[in-house]
Amino acid sequence: MKQDLRFNLEDISQIIIGAFALAIPISFSQEAWELGETLPFTNLLLLLFLSFFFLGFYTYQSIFQGNVKYRMFAFIFRVVVAYLIAFVVVSLILFSIGKLPIIDETIITIKRIIVISMPASMGAIIVDGFDKE
Rank of each mutant, 00 (worst) to 15 (best):
L48I: 08
E10N: 07
I110M: 09
D11P: 01
Y60M: 07
T106N: 11
L100F: 13
L47I: 13
E105G: 08
L84I: 12
E133L: 09
N8K: 06
L50C: 12
A32S: 10
I63K: 08
M1R: 14
V81S: 03
F95C: 04
A86I: 01
P101S: 14
R71L: 13
A74H: 10
I93W: 05
I16H: 05
Y83M: 01
F87V: 09
V115C: 09
D128A: 07
I26V: 15
Q65G: 04
F49W: 05
V127K: 06
T59K: 06
A86Q: 01
F54L: 14
K111R: 15
I76D: 03
L94N: 04
Q3S: 13
D131H: 09
L5S: 02
V127C: 01
R78N: 08
F95L: 15
Q3L: 11
K2I: 12
T109L: 07
G18V: 06
K2H: 14
G98Y: 02
S117V: 02
V115N: 08
F64G: 07
F77D: 05
T109W: 13
M122E: 05
E10P: 00
L9D: 00
E133Y: 04
E105N: 15
S91H: 01
V90G: 05
D104M: 14
P40G: 11
R78Y: 00
L84V: 11
I116L: 07
R6Y: 07
V89M: 10
A23I: 02
K99N: 14
L55P: 06
M122L: 15
A32M: 09
K99Q: 15
P40Y: 05
I16R: 05
F73V: 04
V127L: 14
G56K: 14
I26K: 10
I108A: 09
I114V: 14
W33Y: 12
V127Y: 10
G123P: 03
V79G: 09
S27I: 03
S29N: 12
L5G: 05
V89Q: 09
I103D: 06
I108V: 12
K111A: 10
I12S: 06
G98F: 02
I114E: 06
V115Y: 04
R71M: 12
I102V: 15
S51G: 15
S27A: 15
F54S: 09
F7M: 02
A32E: 01
V80D: 00
I12L: 12
I12Y: 02
S121I: 03
G56D: 13
T38Y: 11
A124G: 12
G98S: 06
V115G: 08
I24M: 11
G129K: 03
I12Q: 04
I107A: 11
L100E: 05
F53E: 07
E10V: 06
P119N: 07
Y70R: 14
T42G: 08
S13V: 02
F41L: 15
V80I: 12
F20V: 03
K99V: 04
A74S: 13
F28L: 15
T106W: 13
P101N: 12
V89S: 09
P40A: 11
I126M: 12
V127N: 07
S91I: 00
I17P: 00
A86E: 01
P101E: 13
W33G: 00
R6A: 13
F75H: 04
A21Y: 00
A74Q: 13
